[in-house]
Every structure is written in C-alpha cells, then in structure tokens.
Computed example of a mutant assay.
Amino acid sequence: MIKKWFLGLSLGTSLLVLSACGGADESAENENAQPETQEQAPSGEENAAQPEMPEPDLEDIPEVVAQVNGEEVSKEEFETAYTGQFQQAAMQAQMSGQEIDQTLLKNQLAESMVGQKLLIQEAENQKLTASDEEVDQTLEQLAQQNGLETTDEFLKALDEQGMKEEQVRSQVATQVKVDQLIAESAGDTTPSNEEVEAAYEQIKEQQEQMGSEEELPAFEELKPELEEQVKTQKENEATQTLVAELREKADVTINL
C-alpha cells in the first residue's frame, strides 16, 4: 500500500486530483447509462438538494507555517496540501451532513506535515537509497491505484498538471526511502492467524451492531484482505511510534 500522506505534497495533491477526475468520469458514465424514461427533477429542486461546496479558509496562514529542525514548511506548501485535504473533507461532509472544523483540519495537517518532514529527514540521516527499479515499481503501483494502465499514462497525467517526470521520480524516490525507514522500524509485520481471526470477528460484530442483514463472506474468502489490513495497521502504528520518537528529539515550531 502506498501511503499517499507521505508523498511529496505536490504529488500527493495531484493524486487527489487524478482520483477526483476518475470519479467524475464515472459519475458521468452512470448518468448517461440511466434509462431515458426516468423522471428528471426540476433544476430548482436539484439545486436545493445539493448544498454549495464550502471554500477552504486560507486567510491568516503565516508565511512559515512550521519549522522542523531548521527546515521550513512554507505557506505555499501548506495551502497546496490544505486545498487537497479540504476537498476530500468537503465531499465527506456533504455525504454525512456534518460541518467541517477548518481549525482542527489545519492543525491536523500541520502535524502531519511536521511528521512527514521528520521521516524524510531521518531517511536522509540514515543515508537510505532508492534504486531506479524500486522507483519504477512504485510508479507502476501508483498508476494502477489511479486507474491508469501504464506508468507512461500516469506520468503524462501528472505532466498535464504541471509536474515534470524528474520531479515525480524525485518525490517517489523519497517515498521509497521513507517506506524503507518505516519497514525497518516496524520489523516483521506478518499477521498471525489469531490477529487475522480477531479482525474478522471485529467486522462481524460491527455488522451486527449496525443491524446489517447482508451475509458476511466466509473467513477463508476474506482472509487475504484481512491479512493486508492487519499488516497495514501494524505499519501505521509503527509509523506513529517512530514519528513520536523523532518529535521528542526534534526542534519543532508550529505557527498556526
């Protein structure tokens, strides 16, 4: 699993845009596939049912959002990342009917960006390297995750958004190094049978609590997905622990 949170901010935002474009295309196809006999609601009713998308609040963002061991998180970096995060949060808020707490969202993003800087700095301190083969493999995975068949298509899509191949490869190389750092910190994340079974039981309990009548697939059928889920959870926990350890020793200032 590629942790998009750790990808360079420009690339991370571009990936969000690619995903959004894919979703929009899918919606358009679904609309075109609707039967012609279906009654169309008047435009006024449609507008009433669809609340306006809120706008990200970018006022009062300082020129230097944070400093991490002397390295700055600039206003431009933060605003680019926040706009992408806000778009995701706004779509979720529309579906749930909840309002977005932009102050909380900004603080969470600032903390995430500090963690990102700390991990990248540590990977550099340990002189970790990323081979061309590892970068190519990661690019291929990213292309598939964004619904594209080849790396060339993926690079072309990012180029159209203003990201040159050299810049993309540089950020992906950084990602590979951070993944190495996390893997070393996490150690063996292979889930035991007991952990996978516990994950299955948790899903079963959640389904019962929700009153779902849908039959849960058999354990053996879900086992590969559950193994990946438990493995990812272990990696995420190791990442949080590592960031906390690095943060304790770091010189960090957040100016929000």
Rank of each mutant, 00 (worst) to 15 (best):
G115N: 09
D101T: 08
E99W: 06
E31L: 11
L104E: 14
T189V: 15
Q102T: 05
E36A: 12
A89I: 09
L216H: 05
E237N: 10
A20N: 04
K177D: 12
P35C: 03
G84H: 12
Q145E: 15
P224A: 11
Q209G: 00
E225Q: 14
E214I: 13
G8Q: 11
K223Y: 05
S14R: 04
E165Y: 09
K234T: 09
I203V: 15
E99R: 11
N146F: 05
L15S: 08
E140C: 10
V252Y: 08
K177L: 14
E205I: 08
I254C: 09
D251M: 00
E39F: 14
Q40N: 10
V17C: 00
L104V: 07
P217A: 06
F86S: 06
Q161S: 08
E55C: 10
N30F: 00
E194G: 01
L142I: 12
L105P: 05
G84N: 08
T150G: 05
V252D: 07
A143K: 11
L139W: 09
T138S: 06
Q141A: 11
T239W: 02
Q94R: 15
G44H: 01
L216S: 01
T37M: 06
T174E: 15
A199D: 03
L222K: 06
T232L: 09
A250N: 04
V230A: 03
K117R: 14
G44E: 04
A143Q: 07
E184V: 14
Y200N: 02
A157H: 03
Q167A: 14
N32C: 05
E214G: 09
V196Q: 09
E165V: 13
E26Y: 06
A130E: 06
A143R: 06
A244Y: 03
Q145V: 11
L222W: 02
Q40G: 11
I100W: 06
M210R: 13
A49N: 07
Y200A: 03
V230E: 02
T239D: 01
A157F: 04
D25L: 14
D179P: 04
Q171F: 05
T150K: 11
G8E: 15
E225N: 10
Q116V: 02
A244N: 12
E201H: 11
D132W: 01
A130M: 03
F6D: 12
A186W: 02
N146W: 04
E124M: 08
P42L: 00
E153D: 14
A123F: 02
E46N: 01
Q206H: 03
S212R: 03
C21H: 13
A90C: 01
L105D: 07
K223T: 03
G12R: 15
A157I: 00
S74P: 00
Q34Y: 03
E149W: 04
D132M: 02
S14H: 10
Q207I: 08
P62I: 01
L148M: 15
A123C: 03
T83D: 12
S96Q: 07
L15G: 05
S131N: 01
E160R: 13
E79T: 14
L139E: 00
E220L: 01
T150Y: 06
Q50P: 00
